[in-house]
Design a protein around this nucleic acid. Structure first.
Lengths: 114, 114
DNA sequence: TTAACGTATAACCAAATGGTTATACAAACA
DNA sequence: TGTTTGTATAACCATTTGGTTATACGTTAA
């Protein structure tokens, strides 16, 4: 078993996988549903107009991105969203906001000269 | 000329396009660079190890997602990031946070019973 | 008016994506 | 034990993606 240490910084590949995982409405819906309460794969699959295998693939993509985790309960696999990863994504966007604010401040400083 | 009214809610397709656009390191880099200051396509293309046409495609993807805007200046096309769209994306993630908090509150309420 | 520069786009290609059906395995139950 | 249920995965397919080269089109400058 590998203990995943909470890495401070995400690599480009990790960020690629996270945003890719979020770029699909079915996968975003799975995140929403499993934020509220954990759900098994069959429970999830029942509500989408596609095969179980397709839903299984979507869940795998989310798992690979660290956006959800699965744990076994008998033969069921319970899926739950991982809010800490969602917060990390928000943190990435906050960095953009900081860059933007930095630009505004430099413009302000420029106007304030003389 | 079409005046784009600031639509309150993004459609699934729009969100798909936005996250897809963010799921590539080159495109994220273009956003970062053009948040600081607007840059022409050739300026942008000079720093990547790929053809001008490839960079042009990346910029088109970002433009289609509303994450950057282009305006002409002579023969140059100046690219600048669109911070308001980035904030909207953050808003989407905030919604997930709200759902998550709602769950916690319900759990707290449950524990508070008796 | 030509030549050079910046941009746009077409045609092509390999690889990835998102779906399918079919099959296998593992756990629960009659 | 045998059957059903839940999950995993393989093989396949059409479409999309992300790159290429080549070419065309405006705009600037000599």
């Amino acid at each position: 078993m590998v203990i995943q240490t909470q890495s401070q910084r995400l690599t480009d590949d990790e960020v690629d996988r996270i945003f890719h995982a979020l770029a699909d409405a079915t996968r975003r819906d799975i995140i929403q549903r499993t934020l509220t309460r954990e759900q098994s794969l069959t429970e999830l699959a029942a509500d989408y107009d596609m095969s179980f295998a397709a839903v299984h693939k979507h869940v795998s993509v989310l798992e690979g991105a660290g956006l959800i985790t699965k744990h076994a309960n008998g033969r069921a696999r319970l899926v739950q969203a991982n809010p800490s990863m969602l917060r990390k994504v928000r943190g990435l966007l906050d960095e953009y906001e900081q860059i933007w604010r930095g630009r505004i401040e430099r413009l302000d400083a420029l106007l304030a000269e003389d």
